[in-house]
Design a protein around this nucleic acid. Structure first.
Lengths: 341, 341
DNA sequence: ATGAAAGCGCTAACAC
DNA sequence: GTGTTAGCGCTTTCAT
């Protein structure tokens, strides 16, 4: 039955339902929340009345009275990097089994924006926070610390967590890739990445990468950075630039799979022997890109596990259960077709 | 200054700030909201006190008292189709200039999920709703109608809007593409799409497409559907399948750019003359994909304008201004390199 | 199994 | 310019 027109032009309250059903507001509240003992007869009357009116409970009032808000703030740098929607979907899948609901905030990699998003979110008194990265302004850290709710920092492990942390060591991931590349005999290595000093995870991967090269007595032979625009196009352009400037390069390491894919397409068009003459590797394991002529070597960022585990920690703590404080995931190297093996 | 440790382990209230600053709660409230006349001296004291304590206002209580919630519910089917993050970012950009804040809900193309997401959202009494599509359950429509807030349905125009609507006629977009294809002399046309009966926009585009073909006395020569998996891979596989089954095809129309790109890569690998022997076209104008060896012909879904205008309508109505009820956008055909011209 | 009263933390409205 | 009072619509707690 379609709800009756609401003549009062006033949001419906419990009171309206209680009047129609002929029971107290308290009883209506109990029925609608499924709490406490209510006789079947009453329950049916109340449900019918609520439905007939098209009553939608007011969570604002409910939350204020109960001091409980079943919201989980999820704070990520961007939606255009496919990694984050994927983390989100894992989080949603876990929270769907609980009364908790994710609320997304996007920071655009800006610490001040992160601070303001966090402030906004915390002012709704969520049951928990899942936030990307370990780098935050002092004020952000202070807010999270004093919020007295579970905080899970995700994606990265290299730093000081506020509370719980789920991720992988980005430095270690960079080192692992470097070692694999060296082991296959590549020596003249070029790097391409985003010009985003605030993408700390990319920065740490690069640091780990150069560290491991240095231990083998190798230095990055050339590098190139971009910002903005279509990553696929930029990958192609940077690859052209770097290969023309440094024809001796035998490996190209990209800070993400998207620019790696652009580079791969360029190399194939130019008839460059991949991975014989030049090897290529990216980072992330973006499923989107399987389907290219060759599979780009990459390292899985384990983002589904990260999202799942982070959400599980929040869900456990929300009901007073113990949960791990630190979960380290190990990224898997995928050789694909662009790294000799 | 880092906030003092909160010894009470109790969320801070206006009261705490008012005690520290030595003024009434009301004055603190005024300062923190920037409303009403407050002397500079008082303002400074209050701001200092709030900062020292690390006070974060409780929006739950504020919203209940003021009967105002500066949230805008944005309800979309998916985050993995890049179109929606792009719409989101346009919405955010507009709302950033206002006190309004977007809250994302994802329905996975399921009407029942849409209904429950909507219910959850409306129970927070948002200032407006932006929702993808014109197809909703009766209950969803009833909820939106009786919520007495601005509702903007986006992306599609072919149907009965609840309130305002911003989008393009998906049917017309399909027809337009069909006419362009026919005009270039293609006659044996294959179609590939998602197996998602609930993606009404894709369905309507297809209907418009076949309508226009029918008017020219042409029927779809073959078709192929997929669900799940990497769109790029699926596009490649379906293209192989359809071309082997129907070698006479001279045009392939894809319901989205991602599978179109997979098909394009396949054709190029096979050395098929594109667009000479076979023409290709997709839909959406996904910027992500420029950077492929050839540019896929496509039609811009105008999603940035859609997001911007939808948000502008909500923002205007939120402050009592008039706003358009219906905005039709005209998708532009981009020939790229895969459709003769 | 149901109801009555108190109050969650804030703001509207009004008084001073 | 600042303070006081009375709720906002629910849920908690306690009474019956």
């Amino acid at each position: 039955m379609s709800p009756q027109h609401n003549p009062a032009k006033r949001p419906l309250t419990l009171r309206d339902v209680s009047d129609l059903a002929g029971v107290s507001e308290m009883t209506v509240s109990r029925v609608l929340r499924g709490r406490g003992d209510v006789s079947d007869a009453t329950r049916i009357k109340v449900v019918a009345a609520a439905k007939q009116l098209g009553y939608v409970p007011n969570k604002i009032a409910g939350a204020l009275a109960s001091q409980r808000v079943n919201l989980v703030a999820v704070i990520i740098p961007s939606l255009s990097n496919m990694v984050f929607p994927e983390v989100m979907s894992s989080i949603s899948k876990v929270l769907d089994e609980t009364p908790l609901q994710p609320v997304i905030g996007v920071t655009n990699y800006l610490p001040e924006k992160e601070e303001s998003v966090l402030f906004e979110m915390l002012s709704w008194r969520p049951s928990g926070v899942i936030i990307a990265g370990l780098e935050h302004t002092d004020a952000s850290r202070a807010m999270m610390r004093s919020a007295d709710i579970p905080i899970v920092e995700i994606m990265d492990l290299d730093g000081d967590p506020i509370d719980a942390v789920v991720g992988l060591s980005q430095r270690r991931a960079g080192r692992k890739m470097a070692r694999a590349i060296i082991k296959q005999g590549y020596r003249k290595i070029g790097f391409m990445g985003t010009n985003m000093p605030l993408d700390h995870r990319a920065r740490k991967r690069f640091e780990g990468f150069t560290d491991a090269l240095a231990k083998a007595g190798i230095e990055i032979a050339d590098q190139e950075y971009y910002c903005g625009g279509s990553a696929l196009v930029k990958g192609r352009e940077m690859t052209k630039t770097i290969l023309e400037r440094s024809p001796g390069l035998d490996f190209l390491y990209y800070s993400n799979d998207m620019i790696g894919a652009g580079g791969l397409l360029y190399c194939l068009e130019q008839g460059i022997d991949v991975p014989g003459k030049v090897g290529l590797a990216g980072f992330n394991g973006v499923e989107l890109l399987s389907g290219l002529p060759k599979h780009l070597a990459t390292m899985d960022a384990e983002r589904h596990d990260i999202g799942r585990i982070a959400a599980e920690i929040i869900a456990a703590r929300a009901i007073g259960q113990e949960a791990p404080q630190r979960v380290e995931l190990t990224p898997k190297l995928q050789f694909g077709d662009t790294l000799k093996r």
